[in-house]
Design a protein around this nucleic acid. Structure first.
Lengths: 94, 94
DNA sequence: TGATCTCATCAGACCGTGCTGATATCAGCT
DNA sequence: AGCTGATATCAGCACGGTCTGATGAGATCA
């Protein structure tokens, strides 16, 4: 799921959405990317459960789900804690 | 920097290193990947400051730097907090 | 209903990036 | 010095994913 934050444009979309829910046209304008491109990235974020789409008339608002970000952050801190715990027990090298 | 954790093999290497420092031969054996491949990924992780190389004789031990992981986790939690704060202030559309 | 707008989907071109094989470097051993 | 083993670097190839243009579905308003 962290995989999704690797792409620059997708990361930028997430940042923009962190400032509050926005519709596709906002994201297209802010990023400067073409609409089908933005729409495709939103689909990926949607399918990964990072954002939700809320249709409002002919607009579609996208909202960032903070819990998903926290979950990802948790994985990293767990890994960091594990690394700290095992820092002084290197493997023997045959 | 999160970008680096997107690649499956690189993510796997980081996980292995979380169990304690290991040398390149360990990583090659554990992952099943070819040596130049592993070496290339280690270079990227090194240049990003996620791991450090500690030459020991003809072996090279790699150690994971937990602070780098915590920093990345911090970025995500910050983003999550921001999203929560702005969750109820959507942008006006047209 | 027809026009217009937002957004999603699709097929194809394009580009970056990971993977591989060959080669170089360096340490340790005889 | 010569040999072996561990690791780093390089050039070329191949594959996956992103970007684009065209098109379609749904909503709004005249």
């Amino acid at each position: 799921m962290i995989r999704l934050l690797a792409d620059p444009l997708r990361a930028r979309i997430v940042e923009i959405l962190a400032d509050g829910p926005a519709c596709t046209c906002h994201l297209v304008e802010d990023t400067g990317a073409k609409q089908p491109n933005v729409s495709g990235h939103l689909r990926q974020l949607r399918e990964a459960g990072l954002v939700v789409a809320e249709p409002r008339g002919r607009f579609t608002y996208y909202r960032l789900l903070p819990d998903a970000l926290d979950a990802a952050a948790g994985q990293l801190t767990d890994l960091a804690a594990k690394a700290r715990a095992n820092a002084s027990t290197p493997r023997e090298c045959p």
